[in-house]
Protein backbone atom coordinates (compact mmCIF):
# COMPACT_ATOMS: atom_id res chain seq x y z
CA UNK A 1 0.00 0.00 0.00
CA UNK A 2 2.80 2.30 0.96
CA UNK A 3 4.43 1.83 -2.43
CA UNK A 4 1.21 2.58 -4.25
CA UNK A 5 0.76 5.75 -2.22
CA UNK A 6 4.32 6.77 -2.96
CA UNK A 7 3.87 6.10 -6.67
CA UNK A 8 0.62 8.06 -6.73
CA UNK A 9 2.22 11.04 -5.04
CA UNK A 10 5.10 10.71 -7.46
CA UNK A 11 2.75 10.85 -10.43
CA UNK A 12 1.01 13.87 -8.91
CA UNK A 13 4.36 15.58 -8.41
CA UNK A 14 5.36 14.94 -12.00
CA UNK A 15 2.08 16.27 -13.35
CA UNK A 16 2.21 19.36 -11.16
CA UNK A 17 5.80 19.96 -12.27
CA UNK A 18 4.71 19.75 -15.89
CA UNK A 19 1.80 22.12 -15.38
CA UNK A 20 3.86 24.54 -13.35
CA UNK A 21 6.55 24.55 -16.02
CA UNK A 22 3.96 25.31 -18.66
CA UNK A 23 2.52 28.22 -16.69
CA UNK A 24 5.74 30.08 -15.96
CA UNK A 25 7.01 32.60 -18.47
CA UNK A 26 9.45 35.48 -18.59
CA UNK A 27 6.85 38.24 -18.85
CA UNK A 28 4.73 37.37 -15.83
CA UNK A 29 5.80 38.25 -12.36
CA UNK A 30 6.33 34.83 -10.77
CA UNK A 31 4.41 34.04 -7.58
CA UNK A 32 6.32 30.91 -6.62
CA UNK A 33 10.02 30.20 -7.11
CA UNK A 34 12.46 27.44 -6.24
CA UNK A 35 15.82 28.45 -4.80
CA UNK A 36 18.73 26.00 -4.74
CA UNK A 37 21.53 25.97 -2.23
CA UNK A 38 24.38 23.54 -1.57
CA UNK A 39 23.61 22.71 2.06
CA UNK A 40 27.24 21.83 2.83
CA UNK A 41 28.87 25.23 3.36
CA UNK A 42 28.37 26.14 7.01
CA UNK A 43 27.54 28.74 8.19
CA UNK A 44 26.37 30.17 4.83
CA UNK A 45 24.18 27.18 4.06
CA UNK A 46 24.11 23.75 5.66
CA UNK A 47 21.77 20.86 6.46
CA UNK A 48 20.44 20.05 9.92
CA UNK A 49 19.51 16.62 11.31
CA UNK A 50 15.93 17.11 10.10
CA UNK A 51 17.24 17.33 6.52
CA UNK A 52 16.20 20.99 6.25
CA UNK A 53 18.65 23.61 5.01
CA UNK A 54 19.68 26.38 7.42
CA UNK A 55 22.20 29.22 7.61
CA UNK A 56 22.79 32.81 6.51
CA UNK A 57 21.58 32.37 2.95
CA UNK A 58 18.48 30.42 3.98
CA UNK A 59 17.38 33.21 6.35
CA UNK A 60 18.23 35.80 3.72
CA UNK A 61 16.33 33.91 1.00
CA UNK A 62 13.22 33.70 3.17
CA UNK A 63 13.51 37.41 3.95
CA UNK A 64 13.89 38.33 0.26
CA UNK A 65 10.93 36.14 -0.72
CA UNK A 66 8.78 37.91 1.87
CA UNK A 67 9.86 41.27 0.43
CA UNK A 68 9.06 40.10 -3.12
CA UNK A 69 5.76 38.55 -1.96
CA UNK A 70 6.52 35.18 -3.55
CA UNK A 71 6.37 31.76 -1.96
CA UNK A 72 9.67 30.01 -2.21
CA UNK A 73 10.86 26.44 -1.89
CA UNK A 74 14.49 25.83 -0.99
CA UNK A 75 16.11 22.72 -2.47
CA UNK A 76 19.57 21.19 -2.16
CA UNK A 77 21.94 20.55 -5.07
CA UNK A 78 25.59 19.49 -5.21
CA UNK A 79 27.86 22.47 -5.86
CA UNK A 80 29.30 21.37 -9.21
CA UNK A 81 25.83 20.72 -10.61
CA UNK A 82 24.30 24.06 -9.58
CA UNK A 83 24.77 26.01 -12.81
CA UNK A 84 24.03 23.13 -15.23
CA UNK A 85 20.90 22.27 -13.20
CA UNK A 86 19.77 25.92 -13.14
CA UNK A 87 20.07 26.09 -16.90
CA UNK A 88 18.11 22.89 -17.49
CA UNK A 89 15.36 24.23 -15.26
CA UNK A 90 15.69 22.19 -12.05
CA UNK A 91 15.13 25.41 -10.07
CA UNK A 92 14.99 29.17 -10.66
CA UNK A 93 17.59 30.77 -8.41
CA UNK A 94 20.97 29.83 -6.92
CA UNK A 95 21.84 31.20 -3.49
CA UNK A 96 24.86 29.16 -2.52
CA UNK A 97 27.63 31.61 -1.72
CA UNK A 98 28.40 31.86 -5.42
CA UNK A 99 30.69 34.67 -6.53
CA UNK A 100 29.71 36.88 -9.46
CA UNK A 101 32.45 36.32 -12.04
CA UNK A 102 32.73 37.20 -15.73
CA UNK A 103 33.00 33.53 -16.61
CA UNK A 104 29.75 32.66 -14.86
CA UNK A 105 28.08 35.76 -16.30
CA UNK A 106 28.60 34.29 -19.77
CA UNK A 107 26.23 31.46 -18.81
CA UNK A 108 23.82 32.90 -16.24
CA UNK A 109 22.76 36.24 -14.74
CA UNK A 110 23.49 37.44 -11.23
CA UNK A 111 21.64 39.81 -8.94
CA UNK A 112 23.57 42.65 -7.30
CA UNK A 113 25.87 41.25 -4.58
CA UNK A 114 24.34 40.56 -1.17
CA UNK A 115 27.70 39.82 0.47
CA UNK A 116 31.42 40.36 0.02
CA UNK A 117 33.66 37.94 1.84
CA UNK A 118 37.39 37.62 1.09
CA UNK A 119 39.16 34.26 0.66
CA UNK A 120 42.19 33.13 2.63
CA UNK A 121 44.28 30.16 3.86
CA UNK A 122 43.86 28.01 6.97
CA UNK A 123 47.13 26.37 8.06
CA UNK A 124 48.73 24.77 11.13
CA UNK A 125 49.72 27.30 13.79
CA UNK A 126 53.29 26.00 13.53
CA UNK A 127 53.55 26.47 9.74
CA UNK A 128 55.79 29.02 8.05
CA UNK A 129 52.83 31.01 6.72
CA UNK A 130 51.26 31.35 10.18
CA UNK A 131 54.57 32.46 11.68
CA UNK A 132 55.22 35.03 8.95
CA UNK A 133 52.42 37.21 10.33
CA UNK A 134 51.23 38.46 6.93
CA UNK A 135 47.81 40.07 6.89
CA UNK A 136 45.77 42.77 5.18
CA UNK A 137 43.23 42.59 2.39
CA UNK A 138 44.35 42.76 -1.26
CA UNK A 139 42.40 43.60 -4.41
CA UNK A 140 43.59 41.23 -7.15
CA UNK A 141 42.75 43.85 -9.79
CA UNK A 142 45.44 46.03 -8.24
CA UNK A 143 48.37 44.04 -9.69
CA UNK A 144 51.04 46.36 -8.27
CA UNK A 145 49.95 45.68 -4.71
CA UNK A 146 48.82 42.03 -4.98
CA UNK A 147 51.62 40.50 -7.09
CA UNK A 148 54.52 41.12 -4.64
CA UNK A 149 52.44 39.76 -1.74
CA UNK A 150 51.70 36.56 -3.63
CA UNK A 151 55.40 36.21 -4.55
CA UNK A 152 56.29 36.64 -0.88
CA UNK A 153 53.79 33.91 0.07
CA UNK A 154 55.05 31.30 -2.40
CA UNK A 155 58.13 30.11 -0.45
CA UNK A 156 56.00 30.00 2.73
CA UNK A 157 53.45 27.57 1.31
CA UNK A 158 55.75 25.62 -1.02
CA UNK A 159 54.95 21.89 -1.12
CA UNK A 160 51.85 22.07 1.06
CA UNK A 161 48.87 19.90 0.13
CA UNK A 162 46.00 22.40 0.01
CA UNK A 163 42.34 21.35 0.00
CA UNK A 164 39.92 23.46 -2.01
CA UNK A 165 36.39 22.92 -3.29
CA UNK A 166 36.28 21.95 -6.97
CA UNK A 167 34.67 24.29 -9.51
CA UNK A 168 34.98 27.33 -7.23
CA UNK A 169 36.74 30.66 -7.67
CA UNK A 170 38.97 29.58 -4.76
CA UNK A 171 40.19 26.68 -6.87
CA UNK A 172 40.70 29.04 -9.85
CA UNK A 173 42.73 31.36 -7.64
CA UNK A 174 45.08 28.58 -6.51
CA UNK A 175 45.44 27.31 -10.06
CA UNK A 176 46.24 30.79 -11.37
CA UNK A 177 48.68 31.97 -8.69
CA UNK A 178 50.03 28.86 -6.92
CA UNK A 179 50.04 26.11 -9.58
CA UNK A 180 53.23 24.06 -9.28
CA UNK A 181 54.04 25.61 -5.91
CA UNK A 182 51.46 23.73 -3.84
CA UNK A 183 49.70 20.38 -4.31
CA UNK A 184 46.08 21.35 -5.08
CA UNK A 185 43.54 18.73 -3.89
CA UNK A 186 40.01 19.25 -5.15
CA UNK A 187 36.98 18.21 -3.10
CA UNK A 188 33.28 18.08 -3.96
CA UNK A 189 32.27 19.89 -0.75
CA UNK A 190 34.04 22.04 1.83
CA UNK A 191 32.80 19.62 4.51
CA UNK A 192 34.93 16.94 2.85
CA UNK A 193 38.08 19.06 2.84
CA UNK A 194 37.41 19.99 6.46
CA UNK A 195 37.33 16.27 7.32
CA UNK A 196 40.60 15.75 5.48
CA UNK A 197 42.27 18.64 7.29
CA UNK A 198 41.25 17.05 10.61
CA UNK A 199 42.55 13.70 9.33
CA UNK A 200 45.81 15.32 8.22
CA UNK A 201 45.53 14.34 4.55
CA UNK A 202 45.91 18.00 3.59
CA UNK A 203 48.13 20.59 5.30
CA UNK A 204 46.01 23.64 4.53
CA UNK A 205 42.66 24.81 3.19
CA UNK A 206 41.78 27.72 0.96
CA UNK A 207 38.22 29.08 1.19
CA UNK A 208 36.13 32.07 2.23
CA UNK A 209 37.32 33.48 5.52
CA UNK A 210 33.93 33.29 7.29
CA UNK A 211 33.48 29.63 6.37
CA UNK A 212 37.04 28.79 7.45
CA UNK A 213 36.60 30.72 10.70
CA UNK A 214 33.49 28.66 11.49
CA UNK A 215 35.37 25.41 10.83
CA UNK A 216 38.39 26.40 12.90
CA UNK A 217 36.08 27.27 15.80
CA UNK A 218 35.49 23.54 16.39
CA UNK A 219 37.70 21.75 18.93
CA UNK A 220 39.30 19.32 16.42
CA UNK A 221 40.91 22.27 14.66
CA UNK A 222 42.58 23.93 17.65
CA UNK A 223 46.01 23.42 16.03
CA UNK A 224 45.03 25.45 12.94
CA UNK A 225 44.61 29.15 12.26
CA UNK A 226 43.66 31.57 9.47
CA UNK A 227 46.88 32.92 8.00
CA UNK A 228 48.24 35.15 5.27
CA UNK A 229 46.53 38.05 3.53
CA UNK A 230 42.92 37.99 2.36
CA UNK A 231 42.03 38.38 -1.31
CA UNK A 232 39.07 39.96 -3.13
CA UNK A 233 38.03 40.81 -6.73
CA UNK A 234 40.03 39.59 -9.74
CA UNK A 235 39.14 35.89 -10.18
CA UNK A 236 36.79 36.27 -7.22
CA UNK A 237 34.60 38.66 -9.17
CA UNK A 238 32.26 41.14 -7.59
CA UNK A 239 31.03 39.46 -4.44
CA UNK A 240 28.29 36.92 -3.74
CA UNK A 241 25.04 37.17 -5.70
CA UNK A 242 21.91 35.20 -6.54
CA UNK A 243 22.25 33.34 -9.86
CA UNK A 244 19.38 33.20 -12.35
CA UNK A 245 18.72 32.13 -15.93
CA UNK A 246 19.52 34.78 -18.54
CA UNK A 247 15.93 34.98 -19.73
CA UNK A 248 14.34 35.54 -16.31
CA UNK A 249 14.79 39.31 -16.38
CA UNK A 250 11.68 40.13 -14.35
CA UNK A 251 12.90 37.89 -11.55
CA UNK A 252 16.32 39.56 -11.69
CA UNK A 253 14.80 43.00 -11.26
CA UNK A 254 12.73 41.73 -8.32
CA UNK A 255 15.81 40.31 -6.61
CA UNK A 256 17.88 43.47 -7.16
CA UNK A 257 15.17 45.57 -5.59
CA UNK A 258 14.68 43.21 -2.63
CA UNK A 259 18.43 42.92 -1.95
CA UNK A 260 18.78 46.70 -2.11
CA UNK A 261 16.10 47.19 0.52
CA UNK A 262 17.50 44.37 2.72
CA UNK A 263 20.92 46.07 2.67
CA UNK A 264 19.38 49.51 3.33
CA UNK A 265 17.37 48.49 6.40
CA UNK A 266 20.28 46.54 7.93
CA UNK A 267 18.75 43.05 7.52
CA UNK A 268 21.81 41.74 5.66
CA UNK A 269 24.08 43.05 8.40
CA UNK A 270 21.94 41.57 11.18
CA UNK A 271 21.78 38.10 9.55
CA UNK A 272 25.46 38.23 8.67
CA UNK A 273 26.49 39.01 12.25
CA UNK A 274 24.14 36.29 13.52
CA UNK A 275 25.47 33.49 11.30
CA UNK A 276 28.89 34.54 10.02
CA UNK A 277 30.15 36.46 13.09
CA UNK A 278 31.29 39.21 10.73
CA UNK A 279 29.66 41.92 8.66
CA UNK A 280 29.81 40.97 4.98
CA UNK A 281 27.36 43.67 3.77
CA UNK A 282 28.50 45.01 0.38
CA UNK A 283 28.66 48.80 -0.16
CA UNK A 284 25.26 50.21 -1.19
Amino acid sequence: MKTIGKLASLAALTISALMWGAAASAEDRPTAITIATEGAYAPWNFTGPDGKPAGFEIDLANDLCARMKVTCTIVLQDWDGLIPALNVGKFDVIMASMFITDKRLEIINFSRPYAIDPSTFAVAKTSALAKAGMDGEYDLNDEAAAAPVIEKMKPLVKGLAVGVQAATTNQQFLKKYFDGVIDIREYKTTEQHDLDLAAGRVDALFAQSTALAATLGKPEYSAYTLAGPKFIKGVFGRGTGAGMRKKDTTLLAMFNEAIGSAIADGTVKRLSLKWLKADVTPPQ
Partner: peptide, 25 residues
Protein backbone atom coordinates in the same frame (compact mmCIF):
# COMPACT_ATOMS: atom_id res chain seq x y z
CA UNK B 1 19.43 11.54 -16.92
CA UNK B 2 19.48 14.22 -14.26
CA UNK B 3 20.84 16.91 -16.56
CA UNK B 4 19.47 15.54 -19.84
CA UNK B 5 16.03 14.47 -18.62
CA UNK B 6 14.83 18.00 -17.96
CA UNK B 7 15.98 19.15 -21.38
CA UNK B 8 13.97 16.33 -22.97
CA UNK B 9 10.88 17.10 -20.89
CA UNK B 10 11.13 20.79 -21.71
CA UNK B 11 11.25 20.01 -25.43
CA UNK B 12 8.17 17.79 -25.10
CA UNK B 13 6.30 20.47 -23.16
CA UNK B 14 7.14 23.03 -25.84
CA UNK B 15 5.56 20.74 -28.43
CA UNK B 16 2.47 20.64 -26.28
CA UNK B 17 2.36 24.43 -26.31
CA UNK B 18 3.97 25.00 -22.92
CA UNK B 19 6.60 27.59 -22.19
CA UNK B 20 9.57 27.76 -19.90
CA UNK B 21 11.50 25.01 -18.23
CA UNK B 22 10.20 21.79 -16.84
CA UNK B 23 11.92 20.07 -13.98
CA UNK B 24 11.54 16.46 -12.89
CA UNK B 25 11.67 15.99 -9.11
Amino acid sequence: LYFGGSVGLTVVSHWLGGQGFVGLP
